[in-house]
Design a protein around this nucleic acid. Structure first.
Lengths: 345, 345
DNA sequence: ATGAAAGCGCTAACAG
DNA sequence: CTGTTAGCGCTTTCAT
């Protein structure tokens, strides 16, 4: 591997000058800069980020750690797309990104990252105080994704879970639905609570009552949702719509309804959450709540980079809004339809 | 950040001894080892992988690069699961993984990895000679995933694309299907050809003729597949089964059949490829070809690690077998059913 | 604008 | 088994 001295020799300058040519080009005369560039190319030189990091104390790498119980970590309807956007943005900034779910690591999870000297870490989903302080204690900036810690210097970027559910309830109400069922995936407690709270608040705000027999908590897997919803729909009374806290659950709900001989959305409506690829795969295509994973990733990067540069993010937590995307799985009731036409036309 | 000298001071030994305590514990007396461990803990020391890498020329990091036209890179029905398994295995070995789709990088894609001094690289999907030699030329081992280069020292791990399709055709034949349609996703030419060749060979082997009007090439997106298949199914004659080269395409095919008022699998069968999450989301659940992404990842890691350790992988290319997983989207024809019963009972 | 020298934290001979 | 010494490839004062 060619080093800076090889370039220096070929260009006939000192290695300091070569170094400057790469780190502060304007501090070098145009003429020598040109010679150095050419020399570098001729010996096929690439700066050694490792050696550079020794001096600057900046590796140009960050870590992205997904809580280990969130398996799969990468093929995950929520965290996968966020990771995708983080990777893309960071690569553009010249950063490398280490990924790891913290499972299978013998020591303190994040130990690996620590020894790799990352400049900052994004901790996705749940985490704990020990992990967070293993970073912050060494001055490594941390941003929490979808989790919050009431501690100074720990920043969070969150999805507006409550708002997402509230919007959905309002939308359903406006569409004429009065009997809204709620099928909750068993996620981390943090998210679970936020979505549930959104449901409670929105139902109250709409003057609707929550029927326990229309509610269920399930593992976020198609089969589990299917079983639970299938049982629910076998009873005498049933909701006119099932609001689900993720798309996987919603797909299970749709399947259960279909199996019961119900038509979706004519007999029963379903709405999902995440706006994942499953939505269009489902028949009928799922109306779902989009969490704007791109923005979530962008914000996380922004908050992390700010800290790495020694500045403070503008607020201790950033919240990203959701957006309901309409497809085919929700029936607009006759009366509501008429009202909509009257209102908007 | 505490360094090795801090530990040395506290433990009352030289820094070399501390170094040994971490890299070759058995070369240190039990007594001092204990003192060093304690000292390290007391000052909260973690070895600096950067400094270590300067000497050893091994960073303990590898790169995983997905060809940029394979977007999304991470949320990808084929490469996502492979990445997942690579990350998991490598983390256990103490390796860090850099990921990047090579899009959005100003320079030579992989330039970033190069400067990060990775110990090896997995290049997924298509790549080109320049990228490969930018690594191999510097002595950095490379393994190609789903791609092949006829060049010394470049190893590949491949999925048995042709075999996967051939198995499917044989399975369909045994199930009594004689009119097999083939809906091909427009992937990289490498994969496209291998699957197509499998189809051609298998049809020939089964004595079946390929009907061009039952074949289509589509973008691997639900809508595109839908349009194409919808048109196909509007014609007078139609195949009894549609063999699709990925699940996304298959879902589009199912939707098109349903829209035409056909029942799946009673009126027309569909089989997918990848055995992704879409299979169970689809109604009916898709019979699909599983590529064994776990094994693909495992093999890639094995081949890379072997090279990093200076050994040669046993062969220049490893091929991983596929497996057909039956679900609900393929009809077993009456006659075939009878035959199966006769044969096996 | 450029060069000389020092040193980042660690490992790897080489002595002892 | 342990300490001494040199140096990895680079950036960064400090001179010039």
């Amino acid at each position: 591997m060619p080093t800076i001295v090889d370039v220096a020799r070929v260009a006939g300058v000192s290695k300091s000058t070569v170094s400057r040519a790469f780190t502060a080009p304007h501090a070098v005369s145009f003429h020598t800069l040109k010679r150095i560039t050419r020399a570098a190319k001729s010996v096929n030189y690439t700066p050694n980020a490792i050696a550079r990091a020794m001096i600057t104390k900046k590796t140009g790498n960050i870590g992205f750690i997904i809580y280990n119980l969130q398996a799969p970590a990468i093929v995950n309807p929520f965290y996968g797309p966020i990771l995708e956007s983080v990777v893309e943005i960071m690569a553009r900034e010249g950063y490398g990104i280490f990924i790891s779910s913290d499972s299978g690591l013998k020591n303190n999870p994040g130990e690996l990252m620590l020894s790799k000297q990352v400049d900052g870490v994004i901790l996705a989903s749940r985490t704990n105080a020990a992990i967070v302080s293993s970073f912050t204690g060494r001055g490594i900036p941390v941003v929490l994704l979808n989790y919050r810690f009431n501690r100074a210097g720990v920043y969070s970027v969150l999805s507006d879970d409550a708002g997402g559910i509230m919007n959905a309830v309002r939308y359903l109400f406006d569409a004429g639905h009065r009997h809204i069922g709620f099928i909750e995936g068993r996620f981390t407690r943090f998210i679970f609570r936020r979505r549930r709270q959104g449901f409670i608040d929105a139902m109250k705000a709409s003057g609707l009552s929550i029927k326990p027999e229309f509610c269920a908590v399930v593992a976020p897997a198609i089969e589990d949702a299917f079983d639970s919803v299938y049982a629910m729909l076998g009873r005498e009374k049933r909701p006119s719509v099932l609001l689900c806290t993720n798309d996987v659950v919603a797909v299970g709900a749709v399947k259960a309804a279909l199996r019961r001989g119900l038509r979706v959305p004519e007999d029963i409506s379903v709405v999902g959450y995440d706006n994942s690829e499953l939505c269009t795969a489902c028949q009928p295509a799922l109306t779902s709540i989009d969490t704007n994973t791109r923005e979530l990733g962008r914000k996380a990067v922004e908050y992390l980079l700010k800290q790495i540069e020694g500045k403070k993010p503008e607020s201790t937590t950033a919240t990203v809004e959701t957006r309901l995307v309409e497809r085919e799985s929700v029936a607009i009731k006759q009366a509501a339809h008429a009202a909509l036409i009257r209102d908007y036309h």
